[in-house]
Design a protein around this nucleic acid. Sequence first.
DNA 1: AGATTATGGTTCTATTATAGAAACATGTGA
DNA 2: TCACATGTTTCTATAATAGAACCATAATCT
Lengths: 257, 257
Amino acid sequence: MTLKTLDNSLEVLKYFNKENPTWGVRELAKEMNISHSIIYRILTTFEQHGFLIQNPETKKYELGLRFLEYGQMVRDKLNLSDFVLPIMKNVADTVKESVFLTWLDGTDGVTVEIAESSQTIKFSVSIGTRTPLYIGASCKTMMAFLPAERKKEITDHGMKKLTPDTITDPDALLADLEKIQQQGWCFTTGEYAHSVFGLGVPLFNNKREVIASLTIAGPIYRKPTEDRLPEMINVLQYGAMNIQRYFDQYSFKLYHE
Amino acid sequence: MTLKTLDNSLEVLKYFNKENPTWGVRELAKEMNISHSIIYRILTTFEQHGFLIQNPETKKYELGLRFLEYGQMVRDKLNLSDFVLPIMKNVADTVKESVFLTWLDGTDGVTVEIAESSQTIKFSVSIGTRTPLYIGASCKTMMAFLPAERKKEITDHGMKKLTPDTITDPDALLADLEKIQQQGWCFTTGEYAHSVFGLGVPLFNNKREVIASLTIAGPIYRKPTEDRLPEMINVLQYGAMNIQRYFDQYSFKLYHE
DNA sequence: AGATTATGGTTCTATTATAGAAACATGTGA
DNA sequence: TCACATGTTTCTATAATAGAACCATAATCT
């Protein structure tokens, strides 16, 4: 059905992340429990195409410049900088916290655009960050609007705690999502990272399927009090409305699944 | 020696570029002269890993969000924004033209950082752009400092004209490179694009091998007159010196070949 | 409306590329 | 000097892939 060789190779790529940016052949082979010959062939083939480079001194491999090219092509395709980013910046300036646009991609949310708070203490993640849909305001906002069978896929797939506050009980999660869907926004504290709050609202394509979310996030000690939360929701929903208008106008299409 | 399946698959990826961002299965198979079954298996495998996504309506494939993730990891690794970009912005403000940092990657130069001119008419390319080393100021600056055998590889590999002014005669190119190496900078007009001038200087790693270049580029009608060129070279070399100091300090390592 | 010709997707098996062990070359630390 | 790392290469049984043929479906032409 699928190509096993390519499948394995892409699996190998996944081991190159921020925590482990460089790998030696045997080192990675041991980590993956695969023969080092196989890893060697995969790494050298990627290298020949510029997706990996080998440090000539340490002989270890790391991500190559080819990814810069493809990454930029995806960014250009999204073309969020021109119209969406100013809206996000506006929200960020108003609430004095960072604002994120998160895209639905399979069973993950991917951060595709960021408007950072001007404050010195702020929540900060980098573009391309990938988070399971059951964790945090930006992701749960999207998951809440998925059809039941896709929710089930996610809960069945097994859930891990990022913090003690991450909800991993399927029933508790589904009840939470139900509430989020009804009220149209999601407020969380400490689910994604210990000292962070998040407030998210969903964005839809022209078929009313959820495709993204807009989220405010900041340090937990600045989280809005209950009486000020409606105000923040208002600002966020106003920004989301403007972005939604842009999506609708250009019949925004970045497909999921 | 190398993995043929992976090799083919990465070759398929190359067909997804700015000019042709979306491909149908049979369409791409015809373009590559390969059975559509093969292409189908490759595309679906990439899709399962998020490197491609299929538009559920048109059934065509395009680049997926996974590249955003890897692209950002490479950007983070380069970490040019903090120290190098301010230097580039400084140069850009002084000369009132765009400034580019280009990385050596095999037989290409890759744009890795940009400081745009504040002028309304300016030369503009996007990050990740890949250009053969024999074309334009930013690339020839680097090629000039390569060992003779690598120059030969490039000239032997066949050269195409991007504009009528692109030098494609091996002897003429080598003579040009000789001059560039001696004077330490490269000034070109119309080689990369018809109405563009460029002025580049090289950057080296701690083994005195060329790894990058710093380039000023702008519309040809604003190109410096002969008596004002030395001034521009000065500004550029001063910026390059500061960047070079940063490279040396952090024993900058992004390997080529 | 029926025929034609596209498309994406599936199945099958001869062929071929790959897996994985073993060996090799080189470097390093004991 | 020996032992044990490392990346790299070679070999062949075996398993995965190539590629033709086919299916289902949608659009287009007659």
